[in-house]
Structure formats: C-alpha cells, structure tokens
C-alpha cells in the first residue's frame, strides 16, 4: 500500500512538475522560446548607386554573376553657347562592360573615342565595411588598370614602340557609408604613362581623389568626385578634374548626370589629361548610363 502511494505521488509530482514548466512557458512571444539570435556580421551595402562615383571608381562592387553595360558620354564645353547647343553638338563616349565575379572582386573593360583608347581594370576589396561584432568600419578596395592608346602616334619623327601606347593606374579606395544619406571615400591614385608628350613631364603622376554622395531621396543622390594631383600638374595646361552630378536610379538603369571639366573616361585620361577649368566655365555636361544584367542565374528554387 505504501509502495503504491509512493508511486502515485511520484507520478503526480511528475505531472505537476510538467504543468509548472508548461505554465511558465505561457508567454505571448513564442519565438523568444527559441533563444536570442546573436547579431550577425553584415556587410554594408549601397554606399553608392553605382560602381563609379562620377568618373572615379566607387567602393561599391557588382553582385557576383552580373554584367554592367555602361555607356558614357562627355559633351562639349557648355560655354560654347547656343551655336553648339551648349556643347551637345560634340560628344566623346566610352562603352564598357563590367563583370561581378565575387562580392569583392570585379573586372571591366571599355573603349573610349578619346585617343581611341582601350582600358581594362581589376578591382578587389580585401576589407569591406560591415556592422556587427568584430566588423571593419571601412571598405578598402584596390584597383589596377591599364589603358592602350590605339590612335596613330602623334610624333612620327621618333621611333615609336608599341609599349608607348600603354599606361597603368593603381588606386586604393578607402570608403565608408556613414549613414543612409552620406558616403565618403578617398582614393590615392598613381598613374604611369609609358610615353609622355613633353620632356618636362614625369611618367609617374600621383594624386589623391575624394568622392562622396548625399542621397536625398530613395532613388536619387548628389555625387561629387575630385582628384588633386600632387605631382605633374603643369601650370595653365592641365587642371584637377572636378565632377558634380546626380544619380538617378530607375529600377533597371542608373543614370549619372553630371558636369565636369574633364573629358576623359578612364583614370589615365581624366587625371592626367584634363585641360579645362571650372573657374573659366569650361565645363561639360556628361552622363553615365549603367544597365545591370544578371548573366548567371542564382539557384533559388531547390
């Protein structure tokens, strides 16, 4: 009898124990029963709408498996007046294709009408800005590029080498998206021209660029980029390129409309060969049109 009493009381206490725990679980938030999720390290995205600020590379990358078809136009000087439709009568262009390979690796190439120049680059980010514990506050990206001038040699009195057509540029981009509104970056850049026009010019030219944006609506932003040359700026001949513009995103396309004193559409051209100046109103209207295509489909339904 005592034994049975012992067992029944044991069973009862067991049930009671479970009832108590079950009662304790009666909370409104069932999901909290699963425990708190640790805040994940998350990459900061959309610092810029495009992989270029205006002229220069931005800290953004193309998503893996996408291709960006870019059509760039730089028109004539606005101060040419109405007879030239404020510069729209003349246009210089670059057509290019960029490819996203990894989230932090992309390549691209293009051809500009100016000097009939081909250019290609590879861009890689060893560090990317992220949120969460142990994350890095900046994106650091490195760009290496090459340009190849295919127009006839200007000076035929000297022996011209094929390598003289080539120039290189190397750039580091250190950028941060400070908020949804403001992103800023600095871009120390080195350009090496295998052949320079004048004896007095140096083949290596160093500059520091700054770029930024102010996003003022969901799909629009002000953008600016400027390169300050540390070496090789010839007084009265070449100037530092400054470009200000607006990014407009329309779903499939990004339009970058801007005014700039440069015509060049690769790093060599706009950093070392900008011959116009803002203070004389020698500015040009221009646009970059970017259309991104998904060329490698993600496997989503599995």
């Amino acid at each position: 009898m005592r034994k049975y009493f012992f067992y029944t009381s044991l069973m009862l206490s067991g049930l009671l124990f479970n009832a108590v725990t079950a009662y304790a679980q009666q909370t409104d938030d069932l999901i909290s029963l699963l425990g708190k999720e640790k805040p994940k390290k998350e990459r900061e995205t959309n610092a810029f709408k495009s992989t270029r600020v205006v002229n220069g590379h931005s800290m953004e990358f193309l998503a893996p498996g996408t291709m960006d078809f870019r059509i760039l136009h730089r028109f004539g000087q606005v101060n040419n007046g109405y007879s030239n439709m404020f510069g729209l009568d003349q246009a210089s262009m670059r057509m290019g294709f960029d490819f996203g390979i990894l989230q932090n690796l992309m390549i691209g190439f293009g051809r500009s009408t100016y000097k009939k120049e081909l250019d290609g680059f590879i861009k890689f980010a060893p560090l990317r800005q992220a949120t969460g514990t142990g994350s890095f506050p900046f994106t650091v990206a490195l760009v290496a590029g090459m340009t190849y001038n295919t127009s006839p040699f200007t000076d035929t009195s000297i022996k011209n080498y094929n390598t003289s057509r080539i120039a290189y540029y190397f750039q580091a981009i250190i950028g941060r998206k400070f908020s949804e509104v403001i992103s800023l970056q600095v871009m120390p850049t080195a350009v090496h021209n295998n052949l320079v026009l004048l004896n007095s010019q140096s083949n290596d030219q160093y500059s520091v660029g700054v770029g930024g944006r102010i996003k003022f609506s969901k799909r629009m932003a002000f953008t600016v980029d400027y390169f300050h040359r540390i070496t090789g700026l010839e007084k009265g001949v070449s100037f530092n390129p400054l470009s200000v513009g607006i990014d407009i995103e329309t779903g499939g396309h990004v339009f970058q409309l801007h005014f700039s004193n440069s015509t060049g559409m690769n790093e060599r051209a706009f950093i070392t060969e900008t011959t116009n100046r803002w203070d004389k109103a020698e500015i040009r209207f221009g646009f970059n049109l970017s259309r991104v295509f998904q060329i490698v489909k993600k496997k989503k339904h599995s």
């Binding site: 995205t45 998503a63 498996g65 998904q294 993600k298």
Partner: peptide, 18 residues
C-alpha cells in the same frame, strides 16, 4: 527581410534598399 533570395541580384538590392 535580407534573407529573401531573388533570381537577380539587382532586384534583391532594390527590394532591400528601396
């Protein structure tokens, strides 16, 4: 919300950002 996967990367970007 960031866990939604799209066929196209750009669509996913716009979904999250805009």
């Amino acid at each position: 919300m960031k866990g939604f996967e799209f066929d196209r990367a750009l669509m996913m970007e716009h979904f999250n950002e805009n």
